[in-house]
Design a protein around this nucleic acid. Sequence first.
DNA 1: AATGAATGAGTCTTCATTCAT
DNA 2: AATGAATGAAGACTCATTCAT
Lengths: 193, 193, 193, 193
Amino acid sequence: MPKVGMQPIRRQQLIDATLEAINELGLAEASISQIAKRAGVSTGIISHYFKDKHGLIFATMQYLLAQLETAVAQALSQTEASPKARLMAIVRGNFSPSQINQAAMKTWLAFWSVSLYQPDLHELQQVNEQWLYSSLKHEFCKCLDEKQAEDAALGLAALIDGFWLRGALSQTPLMIDETIRICEQYIDHKLAY
Amino acid sequence: MPKVGMQPIRRQQLIDATLEAINELGLAEASISQIAKRAGVSTGIISHYFKDKHGLIFATMQYLLAQLETAVAQALSQTEASPKARLMAIVRGNFSPSQINQAAMKTWLAFWSVSLYQPDLHELQQVNEQWLYSSLKHEFCKCLDEKQAEDAALGLAALIDGFWLRGALSQTPLMIDETIRICEQYIDHKLAY
Amino acid sequence: MPKVGMQPIRRQQLIDATLEAINELGLAEASISQIAKRAGVSTGIISHYFKDKHGLIFATMQYLLAQLETAVAQALSQTEASPKARLMAIVRGNFSPSQINQAAMKTWLAFWSVSLYQPDLHELQQVNEQWLYSSLKHEFCKCLDEKQAEDAALGLAALIDGFWLRGALSQTPLMIDETIRICEQYIDHKLAY
Amino acid sequence: MPKVGMQPIRRQQLIDATLEAINELGLAEASISQIAKRAGVSTGIISHYFKDKHGLIFATMQYLLAQLETAVAQALSQTEASPKARLMAIVRGNFSPSQINQAAMKTWLAFWSVSLYQPDLHELQQVNEQWLYSSLKHEFCKCLDEKQAEDAALGLAALIDGFWLRGALSQTPLMIDETIRICEQYIDHKLAY
DNA sequence: AATGAATGAGTCTTCATTCAT
DNA sequence: AATGAATGAAGACTCATTCAT
């Protein structure tokens, strides 16, 4: 039943189906037909809305990134202005429910892996990585000199990514409270200088 | 001219070619024929030595794991017995040259990604992860009570993996000295309790 | 804003776009969407005016044939009544600007090629061929006996088609003056009997 | 039943099947699977021997060209040295049985048509065209001054191609005797200067 | 032991066509 | 009259695997 103005609806529908397929089958097995089946549409429609499979994959990664940014922005907006509070908000944003469910983490991991061979995906990933690092450094700079702030930001970024990676790989729900507490200890330790 | 006793030679030759192909093309594009071309053999030979492609991939991951274990064991064998020294040895082992070159890191990342959908690969990865965690916890226990040791081990493991992941994704050589120094600060901080 | 009486305008618009697409892409790549894009309309419109793609292709070939007939008729109308003058007019008509531009010749060649497998296109082509042959023979008959006239008509028709084909294939502008002179020599030679 | 040294056999087998398919269905409908079916092999084998479909098409056109060259060379080898005899041999070579059967002519026409959009096919066609023209001019030069020889060669080449084209399009067997006689008259007329 | 010929399932993509709006 | 959403079949191509030699 063709209709007008379906573009945003169909696009999101297909992105959701892509996430679903990657979660269940892995990126390697997430074929066009599997995605179309999950979206309840025909395969041809994908080229209609995304030009080709790569366009869909790219749009899906963009969507995940936007979600992460939203989660962090939201956490930041609900916190006080102290550096520690803001650093903790960034941490909590990165471990918010929209990010640490298995489906999202598995998809991230898959994207990271392929991004090493696809320049446009790699750029998305790099921008995101830089953004996290800069945000952390910016807060640490309020309390530390630049060199120390850089070290602290690097360490905290690695800590976040590391927990994140281990969560994705462990296939058991991430222990968020513990994770956040360890990050907090790290922040406290760095800010104590 | 067929020879006898080719098995170990051919196997290693094919594993090397696999690593090479994954490094250059990515796991998704590392086809049997690409691997065979790099090894200078015919495609049919792979089934002869590894049964099928999956067997080759599995063996390659085992090989990488063995390399990591060797690197850590070697670092440990050359150090004194103090907990800090041993923890640092583990850190250095994880960031030894055999582990932090781009090819190895890209391959690891690819393996991790697919391991989520392939039980036997996942098991390899889990064993490795547990082994790192246990080693770290064992050392921390010498100075801390169990709960604190667990936290410290979790944190340090995440830190290592996080640096590792960021190194793989950044496509620029990992800054080892800085990385190791940040890990050392973390260890010092934890052991200072 | 739909209008009435759009039929002839839209039809010609689509035929022009078809010629344009075939010229640029070749018949094989001249898809409905490419044609629609060039015409500045949606794809659906084609079925409205031509039933389907084949209807559009057929109409386009008809249009080219009509153009050829017009060119020859016009040349004939502007000449004196002598057989040689009329034969030369037919020659000039066949090499008139509307026929020997690259776009037209490439399209003709494409049509001829597919006409071998599509009865209705083939009929168009055959009618045209017969018409040229008959016209030539009719003029030669005024000076020669029937057998000789047939030979002369066959030869001149072949000469015209041959130059025409070579012009289409050479992708450089046809040297019209030379071509027409060679045809004239042929006519003179035949009429000299 | 895989065997060794199948390359030349399979290649010719596939080229023959391609000619068959083009003859029966037209180039546009001569799909990989249709060709494979006619060759009695699987579709995958084509990429094994010709890389892709275009490689097969190219090889097929090369094969037809080689056949034409052989036919002309053979006709030339069996004739005396006089210019007229040699010119007639070239004509007869171009209208030899291997060239004027419907299948070959239809395939030629299809190739010419697509060659306008595919540089490598176009080059093959251009080389062939030049070769015919040069051969004719070379013979005419023995009796005529250069300008006259060029005209004569151009005319005869057009005559040959024109008959050839009309034969392809008429879908009835070409009347060879008549064709050759008309060409002979043209040669006689030109050499009579 | 090693080759490479051969298969055929599976993937992405393109495209003419239909149809609700 | 005109749009463009949607379909689904068909196309070329890739690839892991098998097997006779």
